[in-house]
Write a protein that binds this DNA or RNA. Sequence first.
DNA 1: ATGAAAGCGCTAACAT
DNA 2: ATGTTAGCGCTTTCAT
Lengths: 353, 353
Amino acid sequence: MRPPGIKDVAAQSGVSIKTVSRVVNGEASVHPETRSRVLEAIDRLGYVPNTAARSLKSGTGGAIGVLIDSLADPFFASLVSAIEARALKEGLSVLVASTGLDEGRERDQLTGFIAGHQVAGVIIAPVAAELPYLEAFRNVTPVVAVDRPLAAFDSVVVDDYAATQLAIRQFVELGHTRIAFYDRDERFLTIRRRYQGYTDVLAEAGIDLDPSLVSWTIDGSLDYAAETERLLGLEDPPTAFFASNAKAAIGLTTSLHRIGREGTAHIAFGDFTLADVLRPAVSCINQDPFVIGTAAIERLLELRESPADEPREWVVPTSLVSRGSGEIPGPAQRHTVDARTASTTSMVGGPAA
Amino acid sequence: MRPPGIKDVAAQSGVSIKTVSRVVNGEASVHPETRSRVLEAIDRLGYVPNTAARSLKSGTGGAIGVLIDSLADPFFASLVSAIEARALKEGLSVLVASTGLDEGRERDQLTGFIAGHQVAGVIIAPVAAELPYLEAFRNVTPVVAVDRPLAAFDSVVVDDYAATQLAIRQFVELGHTRIAFYDRDERFLTIRRRYQGYTDVLAEAGIDLDPSLVSWTIDGSLDYAAETERLLGLEDPPTAFFASNAKAAIGLTTSLHRIGREGTAHIAFGDFTLADVLRPAVSCINQDPFVIGTAAIERLLELRESPADEPREWVVPTSLVSRGSGEIPGPAQRHTVDARTASTTSMVGGPAA
DNA sequence: ATGAAAGCGCTAACAT
DNA sequence: ATGTTAGCGCTTTCAT
């Protein structure tokens, strides 16, 4: 039994299918009386427009595609949640898929979205830095990148460089000179930008960069427990940790607690559940997935109206949430406090530790 | 510029569109040579079948619909993640939407999925206990419920009753008689089943049920901080807490830590990130969203082949993960230990506290 | 093993 | 303000 179609509604209300179509799409020129008769029939029959037919005809469907690393990552889950909430208001559905950080899969899912499902737009956390095959669809399907920039397309990102500088400067001002960069992953421009912020602050403070204090993700994996032990087992171990992403931060925090070294200073790039309940509470750079997701779909909706002028990066502000773990002093606390603050990043106090 | 269609491929490879269709759908009777010629053309043109056209014709599309409470809830995010992973293998896309626990929205999204997008199947965490309007589509679109049962449809759930009994019995055996049931929410059968497990164990142990130890979610909200304070401020306060769901558990844990009462015994229904890092580490009943999600889509795929016989409940096993918070003794520890264990639930040790 | 033709439910273009 | 017609890209008969 197929669901009722536009023809059934037309028959029920004694008008042509075109009039039904007009009512459904909210077009102006329909007699109020006719309209209400049609609406009544729609209601009685439980008619729902078939999106397949609609998008076959119009070339673009009633869904937007969202392509992210993984839904199991709370950051992306919240991001999609924000997008879905906004899409609902717009009457759009959300197709989700994950890349698993694989460029081939990214490509398959993307073409599936665009050529297969004819999505009305795409929001993507890109794995590759550029997606040349999207050029062909530039004027058909708007694309907005999130979390990481994407060459030739709009993107919604945070100021990774400035935010990281703020965190590392705080360590330096507290007298830390042995600062670990936890989870360097060269695959991502964002992480590269964060790493740049780290090295630049060290340089500006006259601290030598010690490669043994940098933890690398190689081949997509890093054993957090082992790495924490390695670092703390060094002859001249780090007194402060900078975790470059939330997943790493959870791994770092967990391993510090397991070996009873949670008193070592640490700041996380990205907030996470219960960060404020741990002792010490974990200081973090807060990048709000709801704000980022909302900004992305907002921009996507704009792009549907007026095709892109010049692609640009939309920078969402972050804040350094001081909860305790990032305010633990180093062995040689300075007495001169540097008052510079980073451009797009503000200091915000959290619950006291 | 529209993407290439089946006609373009047919022209390129010098065959009819029907032959291309055969190749794309992996039908048997195509000459190997013809097939490779077609595949080559597909590759060269970057042809991707238009799912709108396909589903318009065939009546069922290339996506499954997943409808859950909220993607911001880590349990459901992981659930969807598991579903998406399996769907990918099947060549199916995932349409995701949330109900926000609203029955009207549930209905809209569901009809949008089925009549609108013609999904190949639906996985739903139902808000309403029954969805009579789904009857009309019984033979068109398979439906599997998750987390909560749904009248007249298959569902994948856990044994809420037995698992809760196991936790409450542990409290009783440790000498607790003042046990709080944290977050009673009558809207959900699952929570009602958990509550039943709680009251039954109390009754069997001869402990009077004290209504002031039961925290209610009214109108969908419960102020965890205030509720924790109320309970601990009682004349005869609880010495043990049972949190009926993960969200409540996080709220409970957070508020206990904030007021320095984390030493009060507590067990959570549902695991959460960092539960094992807190001190005391939080004991929980572990219901694995990956297992539940995978079971649900597996069943959905079965249903596509062979329409339902009798709807049934698929019970996924849970385990009680002892990490410390649930093993804190009560004021009058018994010396007789009751060895009964619940049917579908097993005891599993976690990292020592 | 391959093809021709009809038509899925809708919208757009063009009447009236 | 309303109706008629064509056709979106594919799958499904039914032929050959």
